[in-house]
Write a protein that binds this DNA or RNA. Structure first.
Lengths: 230, 230
DNA sequence: ATGTCATTGACATTTCTTCGACAAAATTGG
DNA sequence: CCAATTTTGTCGAAGAAATGTCAATGACAT
């Protein structure tokens, strides 16, 4: 739940100096880095693994940053992308946004700025911008009171199931991956057994059992998601 | 669902020149604007109405942009905020992100850039970053839900058959080679036997059997492809 | 010390994948 | 044109994996 989870970043950059600087800077923080020195490798890593954000150079061997980002989006990946470039001109910047990047930074590479912007993107992507009252379908969550209602009926949840539901509602109706839930709740201490299942069971009992239509759906091998009952 | 919905923007800016320019520019597009010339008014408008995004000046009468944004977030509003300022310095920028803004733009106010960035923020906020639907012929795949429909009818697939269909639809109507499917699904440990045939059989049962025209065609010795039925 | 309740680990159930055996079709070579 | 051989389709059943279920544990507050 805290933001102090280790961030996983992918840096796609062929200039060793730049990637070295980024590496030194981010490794001093609570960050796990992966590198790609060409576009093709970058794209396949981005699609294969689940990063919190991607720092992407424009000029790259094999596949340029614009095409890379476009393909990434076309493949259904919505990981935040911050585009870095030595050539800072308006045309390129607009082209970048057109290709689906989230932010674009030109020449004066200021690490603190990059850091602040990356974190803003991640916050936004994860839905942690503001603590607002969340709603999805029948479900209403009052963050301040830690209260959940469905069709106005109060649903009593344990702290863990509450956190899980929070995640699900923030992403709904999209899938929330198993690992994502585990990491959010237990950090880097995967409980010996697969405890998540039990909590999902509890959550189902509380959230779905009293009602006709189940909202909590399992997506085999991937995770869970909330769905509107039709 | 498309981006052609009229955008509703709130512009919080006391400089009439700047707000005039923004007004001229955005009104030429499909945009509905609201203005506030001081911080207090801006905050109350932002909280009362549901804007797609907010353009926020830093220096404002009554309540500065930083405090405004901080209060906005604290009040549970997660509307995207783009901060504009004449004074472009690093400290202010970092402070802006600290207060929960989504983007920060300094002096050379380029309208096209503002526009591109605002739209990127809105896309991100609404969750329309990546393409999340694939279509070929009757087949519709909702990637976020891992749901497949044909002629609107829900098709239930196993994780493996889903993955295979995903590949086929992405390439359709081109041929997808056997080895390509095998490599995508099993990586570098291809099962000893020819398991793929069983999965293709399953996929046929689920995808084609309920319908008149089969879409899944075998290309002997090469692989498989989806075809449009005529 | 006692009771409550969240959490967990062990167990049961369901579902998916694999594999084998055979049938049907296509390809090849005579 | 016909057999022999390869390739693909069909399906059931066993093993593996994922998921659902619940009672015992342990932490916390009373």
């Amino acid at each position: 739940m805290t933001e102090s989870n280790t961030l996983k970043l992918l840096i796609i950059e062929d200039n060793k100096d730049v990637s070295g600087i980024l590496c030194d800077f981010f490794e001093a923080q609570d960050t796990e880095l992966d590198f790609a020195d060409n576009g093709e490798l970058g794209l396949s890593l981005a699609l294969r693994y689940d990063f919190d954000a991607i720092i992407l150079d424009v000029m790259l061997p094999k596949l340029d940053g614009f095409s890379l980002c476009k393909q990434l989006r076309a493949s259904g990946c919505s990981t935040p992308v911050l585009m870095l470039t030595a050539l800072d001109n308006k045309t390129d910047q607009l082209q970048g946004f057109d290709c689906g990047v989230d932010d674009y930074l030109g020449k004066p590479f200021d690490l603190d700025v990059i850091n602040a912007r990356i974190r803003a993107l991640i916050k936004r992507h994860r839905g942690f911008v503001a603590q607002e009252n969340l709603t999805f379908g029948d479900i209403d969550i009052d963050i301040a009171k830690h209260q959940v209602r469905r069709k106005g009926m109060l649903i009593v949840l344990t702290p863990t199931t509450y956190q899980i539901l929070l995640l699900l509602v923030k992403q709904a109706p999209k899938i929330v991956k198993r690992e994502h839930i585990i990491e959010t709740i237990w950090g880097v201490s995967p409980p010996t057994n697969d405890v998540l299942r039990s909590h999902m069971y509890q959550l189902r009992n509380q959230l779905d059992k009293p009602f006709e239509e189940p909202m909590l759906a399992t997506v085999p091998k991937i995770g869970f998601r909330l769905q509107l009952n039709e």
